[in-house]
């Protein structure tokens, strides 16, 4: 048995296809990520002061806004790098343990990872709430819930970007 589709409050709009580029600095091996909306993924290394940055991984990704039909507001999610599912994270991690326990109660835990990670402001609480409502109001399986948490786990810093739901390694086809 499934729930019917009532009028939905949120709608995904302004979907922009692009590239998630993970780059590293050649000497320090510092890593960072950004979104590129161009038609082709960046492949050239470039100089920034004394640093030389080179693309390490490129994944197809997208950006989107949510339109709130109750308030008429459009909420951009440009700071969102991607969502990480608990089950895609290492078994030794806190998020895996938390997610595994929650999944027994049919709550699927995701983490909203933002560009800049711990150094950035993260996803504002109001945006996080809207994102949770957007995905949950679409569920048809009545016992199921989605819980999207802020990155309290340092996923941006600790894990490979391969744990984030983007199309990394798509062309490799394993």
């Amino acid at each position: 048995m499934e729930t019917g589709s009532a009028r939905l409050r949120y709608e995904m709009t302004g979907v922009r296809q692009g590239w998630l580029v993970v780059e590293h600095e050649i000497r320090s091996m510092a890593k960072r990520a950004y979104f590129s909306a161009g038609p082709a993924s960046p492949v050239e290394e470039y100089r920034e002061g004394r640093d030389v940055w080179t693309p390490a991984e490129v994944a197809q990704s997208f950006r989107f806004d949510l339109r709130d039909h109750e308030t008429g507001e459009t909420i951009p999610f440009d700071e969102l790098l991607g969502l990480a599912f608990w089950g895609s994270c290492p078994r030794s991690s806190t998020i895996w343990e938390l997610g595994d326990a929650a999944q027994e109660h049919r709550i699927s835990v995701y983490v909203a990872v933002t560009f800049g990670g711990g150094e950035g402001p993260g996803l504002a609480p109001a945006k996080l709430r809207a994102l949770n409502r957007y995905f949950n109001e679409r569920l048809r399986d009545p016992g199921k819930r989605i819980l999207i948490l802020p990155d309290l786990f340092g996923l941006y810093r600790e894990f490979s970007h391969g744990h984030i739901m983007v199309d990394l390694g798509l062309t490799a086809m394993q």
Binding site: F85, F135, M165
Partner: peptide, 29 residues
């Protein structure tokens, strides 16, 4: 994965050649 998140609907059957964990994650979302 990004296309599934943006366009697949609840209750759909997803047909894919992908076998990565992230496909499960997107399908579940």
């Amino acid at each position: 994965v990004s296309d599934v998140i943006a366009n697949a609907k609840a209750g759909n059957v997803l047909v894919t050649v992908q076998v990565h964990n992230n496909v499960i994650a997107a399908a579940n979302l």
